[in-house]
């Protein structure tokens, strides 16, 4: 088992209101079999033993699916390895003596909670704006009533794999949430069940992303490069098309209400 030493420069910030700065820490005994977060666990145990405040970072499942973890490692969201969340990034990819810079996701829409932990509730609000199919419990038809072409189901699943970690926003030069938003629009829009609300969904989710202060998409592809689920930017194109379709085809709602 290879063990080695690293130097960490970690962004420390007590809360959204406080200022932040980089602090330097040594990680003297890193095992190649550790995950990146386990390496930080060990650093934190040392900090606690010394009476210092441990580094706060979000994490939960540690198997790359919950989307809770994530920060920048040397300027890359989730670190340098493709298709990998930072919790599944293993230390065997690093060398003795390396210096690593750890920074929180930086976006006006993601206020810092503490150190490397940020508030990503803006992403939830984008979903709340329209990222669903309105089907109250109990109102479903039989699962096989509507056939879904396999290729559509698979493509939909490609988009649905999004874990909502925010790496796309963090890595985008414009702090855009286009990949996140388009993944949900693509997931639902590719299924027959998602058609009735397809236009409305695109308009509302896109509008919410703008309200939250995310930037625009310049098609540079940094998001798909760091996406742990490798969701491609073709879904952004699909979202743009849905948006354009929606603008062109938008129909006024009838105002002749009343069912009584």
């Amino acid at each position: 088992m290879r063990t080695f030493a690293l130097t960490l420069h970690v962004w420390r910030q007590k809360s959204a209101k406080d200022g932040g700065r980089f602090a330097e820490y040594k990680a003297p005994n890193v095992s190649e079999h550790m995950s990146f977060l386990e390496m930080l666990d060990v650093v934190n145990q040392d900090l606690i033993a010394k009476g210092d405040d441990p580094i706060a970072f979000d994490h939960d499942c540690r198997e790359g699916i919950c989307g809770m973890c994530g920060f920048m490692v040397n300027g890359s969201a989730h670190g340098p390895h493709r298709g990998t969340t930072v919790c599944q990034l293993h230390m065997r990819h690093f060398q003795d003596g390396e210096e690593l810079w750890l920074e929180p996701w930086r976006s006006a829409a993601f206020p810092i909670v503490k150190d490397l932990a940020v508030d990503r509730s803006a992403l939830d609000r984008i979903i709340a704006a329209g990222g669903f199919i309105s089907v109250p419990t109990g109102s479903a038809v039989d699962g096989n009533a509507t056939p879904v072409p396999k290729v559509d189901a698979e493509l939909s699943m490609d988009a649905a794999a999004c874990i909502g970690c925010g790496a796309c926003v963090a890595m985008c030069p414009n702090a855009s949430a286009a990949l996140f938003t388009s993944a949900k629009i693509g997931h639902l829009g590719l299924l027959p069940q998602g058609q009735p609300e397809r236009h409305d969904r695109a308009l509302k989710m896109v509008a919410q992303a703008n309200v939250e202060g995310f930037g625009h998409c310049t098609s540079v592809g940094e998001c798909e490069a760091v996406c742990p689920k490798q969701i491609p930017i073709t879904f952004i194109a699909r979202m743009n098309r849905d948006f354009l379709d929606a603008v062109i085809h938008e129909r006024p709602q009838s105002d002749r209400g009343g069912s009584g």
């Binding site: 199919i133 419990t137 479903a140 699962g143 879904v148 189901a153 698979e154 939909s156 069940q193």
Partner: peptide, 22 residues
């Protein structure tokens, strides 16, 4: 059985056969 119906209606992209069935 109701659960599967509900989830399909919500847009859960379950695996499908070529004929489009679950």
């Amino acid at each position: 059985v109701n659960i599967i119906d509900q989830c399909v209606a919500q847009g859960v992209p379950f695996a499908r056969e070529y004929g489009g069935t679950l």
